[in-house]
Design a binder for these strands. Structure first.
Lengths: 215, 215
DNA sequence: ACAAGTACTGTTCAAACGAACAGTAGTCGT
DNA sequence: ACGACTACTGTTCGTTTGAACAGTACTTGT
């Protein structure tokens, strides 16, 4: 919606910076002085930003600038069942939104996934844990990935945590629990049996959040 | 440290409220008008608040009010080794400070503790995990607690995660790993042997944060 | 009994500030 | 070629605002 000019972006960023640093917005003359132009140029820019919906101006109020499109407080969507076809990171799928710094995880998390079985228990991942997933479509051998598997009964995709291993065209998705069989998929022979049918990597694990003590 | 008068608290809250609502602080006359007194009364109050360290005033700046004691961005201290005697929750002991909502954990966490052994591995707690601890000095049977144990060599206390069980005056601290022996402490016979000497409950586990994928 | 602090009123003043008007130069899409 | 928009300069005007000075009444601690 808003496509700002580079200059307007600069000015918006300056306002944000001053707000963080000072705790209150700059005056029109503050802006003008910082960029080295006259007050009216600042006023023009503010009006342009207001017209584009980035800010709101309270008439006749000193420093009466309110940021709209607020800086999102760093948070992560908790994704539940994924509607088939929809991109995983689509926030519309979010079950909840947790205020959690994505940078706490390594690599940085793009979304959270709630573990719903004990298949990864030997990797210290318990049912109910929230796993931070860094969205990417490739993985290295031995990494724990969020695998997106198509669920034939129901017509939706679901995310499962597995350890990824690939040898040539054969991908193996291991559970970290001896009671579960690994899923083997031969990429060279697509859609052979039902079990190993459509599969893609949703992302790799970057950490874990457990929101309660284990029983 | 600051003990504000009821009136000063009201005014501080009004400033906070206006900051949230408008995005910029009120002017002295805004404050005066809201409370129904003259501008100079507002000024007096602001100076009192500044004197008490609640706010900072930028001279000659319209709405030049900066909140100090800012609404703490929800965060948690990561406590390392605990100096003997010092209260655990003393933030001076903090190794790092993570921006993390304490309310994510259940019960709400007061600090984080980094696990440094594999003694709780069967509870899905791996070395390096950050455990959210709710500070309290009592625990129920079966709960996982942060136990504060005195380290004779070194003269400091350290926190260890154990499963707590008490029968009469006998407390047992179980590891969740068959390779570790439980620690048994008889509260009725204090300081009997070295192993089970000074012990206290630092808090109970409220969750866990793993900031990377397991190897 | 006195000083210090709280909680105000009232007035005046200068600086800070937003608003308005007029104008220039350049770019971009049609 | 024209209108719309960006990105400015320069000046003036009136309001908003913080600052300062003087004073009152009440409370609290020593």
């Amino acid at each position: 919606m808003a496509n700002l000019t580079p200059r307007q972006t600069e000015i918006l960023q300056f306002i944000e910076q001053r707000l963080r640093a000072e705790g209150y917005p700059p005056s029109q003359r503050d802006i003008a002085e910082h960029f080295g132009f006259a007050q009216n140029a600042a006023r023009d820019h503010l009006q342009a930003l207001a017209r584009k919906g980035e800010i709101e101006i309270s008439p006749n109020d000193a420093r009466g600038i309110r940021l709209l499109r607020e800086q999102t407080p760093p948070g992560l969507p908790l994704l539940g069942r994924i509607a088939a076809g929809a991109p995983i990171t689509a926030p519309s799928n979010a079950e909840h939104w947790l205020e959690l710094d994505p940078g706490l995880f390594q690599p940085r998390a793009d979304f959270l996934h709630r573990v719903d079985g004990d298949s990864m228990i030997d990797a210290g991942i318990l049912p109910g844990d929230l796993v931070g997933i860094h969205a990417q479509s490739e993985a290295e051998n031995g990494q724990i990935i969020a695998a997106c598997l198509y669920e034939p009964r129901g017509g939706f995709e679901r995310i499962t945590l597995k350890r990824y291993r690939r040898k040539g065209s054969v991908v193996t998705l291991h559970a970290e629990n001896p009671r579960y069989e690994p899923i083997v998929i031969d990429l060279a022979q697509p859609a052979e049996d039902q079990e190993a049918a459509p599969f893609r990597i949703a992302g790799i694990m970057g950490g874990l959040l457990r929101t309660g003590a284990p029983r």
